[in-house]
Simulated scan of single mutants.
Amino acid sequence: MSAYFAPAFFSHLLGKCLRRKNPLLEVSKLGLTVLITFAIVWWPYIHSMDEFLGVLSRLAPFERGIYEDYVANFWCTTSVFIKWKRLFTTQSLKFLSLAATLFTCLPSMVQQIWAPSSEGFLYALLNSSFAFYLFSFQVHEKSILLPLLPASLLALKMPHPFSWLTHYALFSMFPLLCRDKLVLPYFSICAQFFLFLHASFGLRGRCNKKDTLFPGSTVPTPFSILFRIIYFFSLILHVIYLKVQPPKKYPFLFEAVIMLLCFSYFVLFTLYANLKQWMLSRQSTSGDTEKKTL
């Protein structure tokens, strides 16, 4: 799962190397360091082809299919309408998922190669990990915790979107936690977290009032009203999932609705985070222009 962050590290370090006095030498040193690290990590397994292939099969369990359970990513959500497993072979789905993941990572990677920065690196970690969560092969529900890690480091930069992201990330794992009989810890930890978030960050006061995509404004807008309605519905859906039996014809109806809600928000958030990352390049360019003028 560390591959979720690999494109961000690659693009950030490459961007840094290209800005040194001797970029070719710096890139060569970086590549040599990566190769030596891989050799050390894989040394116990490269002596036997069976062991090597055994490790690869555990790292990439393609035989399980492109998705296994109700996870709020692209493949599982769209499977309600497109039966990916029936229409495509595993080999074709490998290529499709790889292409979609790399394509989604690309804007974030280009920005870091073009204008690497510490804050941009955090956004790159967030956008890269979300690209893997949304489009890679065989994603688990708990994998949403990987994008949440860099998002937590950026919480002060986008407090309101982070609050909504945390809600839907936890909600996307709710069916899994119910099966594991962790409903009480789920609700208690959610309540503690959001109380801490609002108390510590002063969420309402620190939000950008011009942000119409993630409503933090005191003035209602069509976007903010819609988001609040969906948020309220997601809260009600917790109770429905626990107390109401789904129709026999659609035994996983509630899981599908939860999946659709969470996936929709994750897509919006990923677009928003990529936009925020590219805005850093504009700020960096304007700052350099001002320095040259002075």
Rank of each mutant, 00 (worst) to 15 (best):
T37M: 12
K243C: 13
F162K: 02
E63G: 04
S128L: 03
R19M: 08
G120F: 06
F5G: 08
F174K: 09
H198S: 10
S224F: 06
C190P: 01
F52A: 09
L195R: 04
F130G: 05
T104A: 14
Y250V: 00
I46Q: 10
L145M: 08
V219D: 08
Y265V: 10
F130T: 01
I236A: 15
F252P: 04
I66E: 00
I230N: 01
C105L: 06
A273T: 08
A199N: 15
I66G: 07
T218K: 05
L93K: 03
F95Y: 14
L226A: 13
H12E: 14
R179H: 13
E51V: 02
F162Q: 01
V257A: 01
F121H: 07
L275N: 12
M109K: 01
S57R: 15
P246Y: 02
M158Y: 04
R64G: 13
F233H: 04
V219R: 10
V27L: 11
R86E: 14
G31D: 09
L177R: 08
A100L: 14
D211H: 00
S281D: 12
E255H: 12
V219Y: 00
F194R: 03
W84M: 02
R19L: 00
P61E: 09
S28C: 11
L30V: 06
K276V: 03
L268D: 09
G31E: 10
V80Q: 12
L165Y: 15
F214I: 13
F74D: 05
A3T: 13
I40H: 08
K249P: 05
I229E: 13
R204L: 11
M109W: 02
